[in-house]
């Protein structure tokens, strides 16, 4: 039997901010939302993409030689990449010696990913950490995610997933029993605004959160605070009231501070980033928002910002 395969963007080890303890975070490619502020633009698209970092190029001309579609152009000592004719054959990425051209993701099977994860098992145990599968949207790979989670559970590794939950409920049903910590994102309370900001309405998401709150007892809610878009008190009020209806299975609420360090990623993918150069919130503002949410909550849970 062929093992389940997923497009893996990155396996990042020793993370301290994706659930408790020290964790290995598996980023899968492809998402059902496309938030305007996405910090991981390489994970939105389901297809492989080429990351091109022009200042890494030494103009050796190898890509120029292998490309059958003349996508690489060197002009006045500068390397340009014209994606229009690119067939994504990836030959240029193979020959590039400098990592100026790289494929965003790698097809990996569960065993390969698991072998990476298990390398840090001793650290998970000592720190009460484990793995976190995220994306893109990891629940778009229900089979892969399920068998990876199962394997981790067999090995005694603590499991978490982070999801925006814009997926069919059956995708969740299958895996929910193998998850120790369910990290769910809520971006905006109002469905219309949600659609404007992420490309989708939020009814499905809300229903899914209701569903998991009934079936799972360790849920962490994450809210990205994007200045002027999601950080209004109104939005926090809406989300807070919604969380109150979910009950005690919500254990942690994390407000994510905005940062503006990701625009280079958009450039390297030739993607357009609409939200740039906003000012990150100060710690004081973040603490205010935390206090605000706390004042709304009728349930008992930890609220903090990252």
């Amino acid at each position: 039997m062929l093992p389940d395969i997923a497009k893996v963007n990155n396996i990042s080890r020793a993370s301290l901010s994706d659930g408790p303890g020290l964790r290995t975070v598996v980023y899968l490619k492809g998402c059902s939302l496309s938030c305007k502020w996405c910090h991981n633009p390489e994970s939105i698209n389901h297809e492989n993409q080429i990351v091109f970092i022009s200042h890494n190029s030494i103009l050796c001309g190898r890509c120029f030689d292998v490309c059958e579609n003349n996508c690489h152009i060197i002009e006045e000592g500068k390397h340009y990449f014209n994606r229009d004719n690119c067939t994504l054959c990836m030959k240029c990425c193979e020959v590039c010696p400098t990592k100026a051209l790289e494929v965003t993701s790698k097809d990996m099977n569960v065993i390969e990913v698991f072998n990476e994860i298990v390398k840090d098992k001793d650290y998970y145990i000592e720190t009460n950490g484990g793995i976190t599968i995220t994306g893109g949207e990891c629940l778009l790979y229900p089979k892969f995610t399920l068998s990876l989670l199962k394997k981790c559970k067999e090995e005694g590794i603590n499991t978490a997933i982070e999801s925006a939950l814009n997926v069919k409920q059956e995708n969740i049903e299958k895996i929910i029993n193998y998850i120790d910590i369910f990290i769910a994102d809520i971006k905006h309370f109002d469905s219309k605004t949600h659609k404007k900001l992420t490309g989708s309405k939020n009814e499905l998401i809300k229903n899914n959160i209701k569903y998991i709150s009934k079936t799972h007892n360790n849920i962490w809610i994450r809210i990205p605070l994007i200045p002027g878009l999601t950080d209004s008190f109104e939005n926090l009020l809406g989300i807070g009231k919604f969380i109150n209806t979910l009950g005690e299975s919500i254990k942690v609420i994390e407000l994510l501070k905005y940062n503006n360090l990701y625009s280079g990623k958009y450039d390297s993918l030739d993607m357009n980033c609409e939200i740039i150069n906003k000012k990150p919130q100060t710690d004081e503002i973040m603490q205010n928002k935390v206090n605000y949410i706390k004042s709304i909550l009728t349930i008992n849970c930890i609220v903090r910002y990252l």
Binding site: S15, H39, K257, L261, Y262, G264, L306
Partner: peptide, 18 residues
């Protein structure tokens, strides 16, 4: 590498201003 919540980036991949 510089690490920010939920996302980390290698320093050399950041643009100059960053």
């Amino acid at each position: 590498a510089v690490r920010v919540s939920g996302f980390s980036q290698k320093f050399i991949l950041l643009d100059e201003n960053m």
